[in-house]
Nucleic acid binder design. Structure first.
Lengths: 202, 202
DNA sequence: AATAAAATCTACTGATCAGTAACTTTTTTT
DNA sequence: AAAAAAAGTTACTGATCAGTAGATTTTATT
């Protein structure tokens, strides 16, 4: 065991701490957003000093970028594990449900921020950009397949469906229903899926 | 004319400047959001010094509150001017279209922010709260009427429709389509209206 | 056990920002 | 025309924050 065992344990502790930092970051980001989140918030939430964060991440931007990368990796993993026999529309619905449940448990959306500043920051993060392009590619493929299969409206441009779909993954109605209505998680998810695909009309 | 005329002109100049401040605030809020908007930003945009803003508004919160009040007054005025013969669903569609066009011209959404900090700030502004309640009341009335008329899905809770509807007035897909697609304003509006009421399905 | 290296922390720096004090300019009043 | 008041500005204050320097503690090595 000797030397190698001790080194491996130390690496594991480092990674565990890094995960704790990313978990805390995710929670604080979803509650406060990028601009109001401070490095002291994150450090306090983990129970370490702020400069210790810099052992793991070069800067606040780096930290947030990694948290976003982890989130998108989660979505990509979810897609990779999806049963192959689902239709493209069912896959889109399953991913939307996954994203909604992540959010209802305190996670955060993976739509690129509408804030130009945050978007610009994330666009400098190659790891993030590559993952977003991969995820986009997959979702676009589902959309065009579902349009061909007659499950999604073929008269709507792919862009319109893509951006609307992303927007439904972080629909603020979710937060409002959670805060102000008596609906439980399952009902919220069910209604949100319905509104996304069927709209509001009768 | 004498004294009264001069006073009235001075008051008018004061109000013109106040409107210019609110216009600048609206533009900057829609681009940067509340947290990143600074009083210096607003002052520079108007062409006056920062302390001069405090002749009109007590604080940053007061300024932003008034900008939001003005926006909701705009929506209420739009509703008041609506032809009486439109169905409830048509009224909802017309208001959504109005809101989307305001946003496409650089204005900002009137959905209460999902940021707890901004929400809390606005909840302290009685002028704002009263107007939101009035607007909510009217929109809820349209929703229940449209459900009864069979135009909106009666199986969806009013809350779900209300919050989803509000969310569609500030759908981030609009910004993304504006930035990244070749669609013009009218097409964006048309598609967004369609997605809101009919959803994404075929 | 003593020393060196690594890790973590407290205290600090420089930049930013809301709001204010003091100064200057403009307008009004006498 | 001179004085007073009002309006507007420059310069300032205190608080906050990302990131860092130096001090302290912990761990590893001899």
């Amino acid at each position: 065991m000797g030397l190698l065992g001790k080194l491996s344990f130390k690496d594991q502790a480092f990674r565990l701490r890094e995960d704790a930092i990313l978990d805390a970051t995710t929670r604080i980001l979803s509650g406060k957003g990028f601009d109001l989140m401070t490095m002291d918030d994150v450090a306090n939430a983990v129970g370490i000093s702020k400069p210790s964060l810099y052992k793991h991440f070069k800067s606040k931007d780096d930290l947030v970028g990694e948290a976003m990368v982890r989130l998108i990796d989660g979505a990509l993993a979810f897609l990779a594990d999806m049963p192959a026999d689902l239709s493209a529309k069912q896959k889109l619905a399953a991913l939307l449900e996954w994203a909604l449940r992540v959010r209802l448990e305190g996670g955060m959306p993976f739509l690129p921020s509408t804030s130009p500043q945050v978007r610009e920051m994330l666009m400098k993060n190659l790891k993030y950009v590559m993952r977003v392009m991969k995820l986009n590619g997959q979702i676009e493929k589902f959309i065009t397949s579902a349009q061909k299969a007659g499950d999604l409206n073929p008269a709507l441009p792919v862009d319109v469906i893509l951006f609307s779909y992303y927007s439904r993954t972080c629909d603020p109605a979710v937060e409002f229903l959670q805060l102000y209505s008596k609906l439980g998680t399952d009902d919220i998810v069910t209604h949100m899926l319905h509104v996304c695909f069927e709209g509001l009309q009768a």
